[in-house]
Computed example of a mutant assay.
Amino acid sequence: MSLCEAEKTFVLHGVEENFRLDGREREDYRPMELETDIVLHAFGSARLRLANTDVLVAVKIEIDVPFPERSKEGKLEFFVDCSANATPDFEGRGGEDLAVEIANTLSSAYRSKHAFDLTKLCILKGKKCWKVYVDILLLECGGNLFDAVSLAVKAALWNTQVPKVHGVNIDGNNIELNVSEELYDCDRLDVKNAPVMVTVCKIGEKCIVDPSVAEEQCSVGSIVVAVSGDKFSTVLQTGTGSLHPATLMESLKLGHRVAQRLDEALWATLRQIKPGQDVGFLK
């Protein structure tokens, strides 16, 4: 999708008047739909649709050995795959750079213990821990990927069930774990403060959230903020433009405010969701 100068001017004027192409105001999101527990062999999963952006997340876990320098912690890894059907830009190896950028941003956002406590994944200090793999598939790209991915990841981790360990047998260097095989004998991950990302774009002299593909092309600069509870866990500048320090501060405040609103809406939805149920929110 490519816009001519006249179309970009039209978008800019709409943002200035606080009336965007689809009728939203500058701080409004497009409708979302969330579904959890949809991947049969995963420990947790979620699919989120934000207008034309479609993200599928599956979580799997296995027993591993902690890092020597972090003997009391488990492991958390992110992998992003950009489907070639999502957009023509992803054909061949076109989506690799974006996939790496999203995975690295998620890793940075979840690194803080205030965002996600890895010590709760430790089974036996220095010996055994849970390793959590978060696999993200971008099915369709309709703008604002970072926000959609962060919400889908948080929902999938909330849906994840970790089997309980009822005993440890140590015989020399051999360690055997008594892991429950009962379907409902599991623990939930604590994702209360897991980060929510908000992309803030500057178009003309105003800042907006949840940019569409057309609005992303009109942006003169943008940042992605990840908010955990009431704290920033990471800030990323995207695109090629730059922001004045005053605009940056305004963008951070806007991102922080909107992230908390998004998080409240997500939790309200997760509390009422049932397995296999499709739920819309922020409509």
Score class of each variant (00 low, 15 high):
G204I: 04
R271C: 12
C82V: 05
E96M: 14
N169W: 01
H13T: 13
R30E: 03
Q277M: 14
S108P: 08
E17I: 09
E91C: 12
L183D: 11
S251I: 04
V39T: 11
N18C: 01
V57T: 05
N144T: 05
L266G: 06
L34V: 10
L252F: 04
V209Q: 03
F10I: 12
R70D: 14
E215Q: 08
D22Y: 01
S228D: 07
Q237G: 10
V258E: 06
F10H: 08
T199E: 13
N104P: 04
T238S: 13
S108D: 14
H166K: 11
G255N: 06
T234E: 15
K253D: 07
R47A: 07
P68A: 11
L189E: 07
N173R: 13
G44P: 05
V279A: 07
I273M: 12
I223F: 08
C218F: 01
H166P: 03
G280M: 08
E62V: 10
F79W: 03
G92W: 02
T240Q: 14
T269Q: 02
L189V: 01
E101R: 13
N173Q: 09
G74D: 07
I203K: 06
V227R: 04
L34H: 05
K231H: 12
E33M: 12
I38A: 01
T269C: 12
